[in-house]
Design a protein around this nucleic acid. Structure first.
Lengths: 313, 313
DNA sequence: TAAAAATACTCCATAGGTATTTTAT
DNA sequence: ATAAAATACCTATGGAGTATTTTTA
């Protein structure tokens, strides 16, 4: 049984005439006759009664043809689905961001992307780099925004912007008068850090390599699993100082009077934020749209990388 | 797009592996790969993301495959319909009988046929020979039971039984003592007849050719469109006498005391009752079953013709 | 290196065409 | 005699095979 044969019997049932039906199907009359005979043989039943001057549909025939129409309709629906699906910017995109990026980017990203791709809702998840990477390879999400490096086989990364780190300290801190902070200065300070598992924690530690007292064991316990916002609150309450990515540091709202923010003396520590997706992911234009929307976000202090090229690993 | 291709994509979606899917489809892996690529090209979308160690279904892909399953289910239903339809004795049979036969045969026919073909309900219509013949050629009914002759092109007739005519008269009629009636005796009598259009009327007239007073014009008017039962009532009320087919004559119930029934002296007039169907009608076993059921009816006075052969015209 | 899908090619089944015959009115 | 479907026969597309290459983890 083929879809073509089903089209033929539906046509004959409609026209009640092999010749006219064959025209409607754009084939010759013998082609139609042979095909229908083949189907009748396969099904083991007569679909039509051939009279000299008229073709009649048999009892079973009418039921078969009715069902054949349903098959053809369902098959046509596939084409419609495919046509709609040709647009990369149609259908949801499952998007993940690491904890230290998501809250400071997605609020701006969503409206900008909605303008570019109104039929592509973002399904957003936040998590650790490791977990997001696993989900990406698993096919549970399509795209992640994270901090480099992220060299995984089968994954493409594409840098979007460089983000400098900032020092955030209590407003009454001794450094309040300073214009810039040197990394080495951090050595003598009580530095508040995220719990382990956050890549940003490791990046800060690496930047401050040699700063002996940077890790305060007691403090780490209390911060387990918590967020940059919690750390900022603690700084405001005078517990110590911290280093934040500038998008987080600049997004101070209520505590502007309790904390002070300082840049590092150049070249200060920096992280590179990139998009990552499976090399095989086919909705290329969807990826482009997200990247463009990200570059259009007005993120304070970052250096956009519009000319960066995607990298396969 | 072919049903085979749809089977392939459903298999790959299930197995998430081209090799295993090809085994399930009993084809080689390249065959499957090529077919799926062809479908993807035709639809203009990627259905699968091919990774080195895993196959993933794309967003559109999952919707296409869901729809493909519906198509395949609908196609499978066609096979089920066909399988059920292979049985000629399955599905309704549209059956017609002329007015002067139907009422005396179908009550017995229905239960006998139901035993032989429980899944074949009879859809019964009664009408004149001409109207039934038209409907038969039109394909509105499948089979008719009528009185010969019925020579129509493309129609097959098959005699079932011969039915002698009977004289029915008021119980107090002068002929009450007679054993048999001669056709010629009818000449002097007031003979009640069906309205024109009934073949039985013509048959009686033909049998009584020469009986001048047989046709009573006034009476005919009042009987226009009425039935043998009406005539029987009139006989019972003493208006005149009539000739009935024996199945009708024998089916007296309430009026046994008001009318008397007599046979003709042999060879009396007779009609041959036959089945008729389109030569192209394919449910041959259904026709057989009806004929067998008819022969099994215990019709009083008729001569069964079990050995008669069907005749094409 | 190993596993999996894609590619190259070959072959044959069959869908489709044209010409003709059969059938039925 | 005419109209319509069936049949015969031919062609070419493409579905399916085997062998091989490419890809990627």
């Amino acid at each position: 049984m083929t879809l073509t044969e089903l089209r033929y019997i539906v046509a004959v049932a409609r026209e009640k005439h092999f010749g006219r039906a064959s025209e409607k199907c754009f084939v010759s009359q013998p082609t139609l006759s042979v095909a229908i005979k083949k189907l009748e043989d396969e099904l083991g039943i007569a679909l039509f009664e051939r009279g000299a001057n008229e073709v009649r549909v048999t009892e079973v025939g009418s039921r078969v043809i009715e069902q054949a129409q349903r098959v053809l309709e369902a098959a046509a629906a596939i084409k419609h689905i495919a046509t709609a699906g040709k647009d990369d910017l149609n259908g949801p995109l499952r998007f993940g961001a690491i904890y230290t990026v998501g809250p400071y980017v997605t609020p701006q990203l969503i409206p900008l992307l909605h303008k570019r791709a109104p039929k592509m809702p973002l399904l957003i998840q936040e998590n650790y780099t490791a977990k997001l990477g696993e989900m990406l390879k698993n096919g549970d999400i399509d795209l992640i925004l994270l901090s480099e490096p992220f060299d995984e086989p089968g994954i493409v990364t594409h840098a979007v912007y460089d983000e400098p780190f900032r020092v955030v300290m209590p407003a009454q801190h001794a450094w309040a008068g300073k214009a810039r902070i040197a990394v080495a200065d951090l050595c003598g300070e009580n530095l508040l850090l995220l719990s382990s598992g956050n890549c940003f924690r490791d990046q800060v530690l690496q930047a401050c390599a040699g700063a002996r007292r940077a890790v305060n064991a007691g403090l780490q316990q209390t911060l387990e699993g918590s967020s940059l916002e919690t750390i900022r609150q603690m700084v405001a309450s005078g517990v110590g100082l911290t280093v934040l990515p500038c998008t987080a540091a600049e997004s101070r709202t209520a505590d502007t009077k309790l904390t002070a923010m300082k840049q590092f003396s150049p070249p200060g520590p920096t992280r590179r934020i990139a998009l990552a997706w499976r090399k095989s992911f086919p909705r290329v234009r969807a990826l482009q749209a997200v990247r463009e929307a990200l570059l259009a976000c007005n993120l304070p202090g970052v250096t956009l990388l519009p000319k960066a090229a995607p990298v396969e690993h």
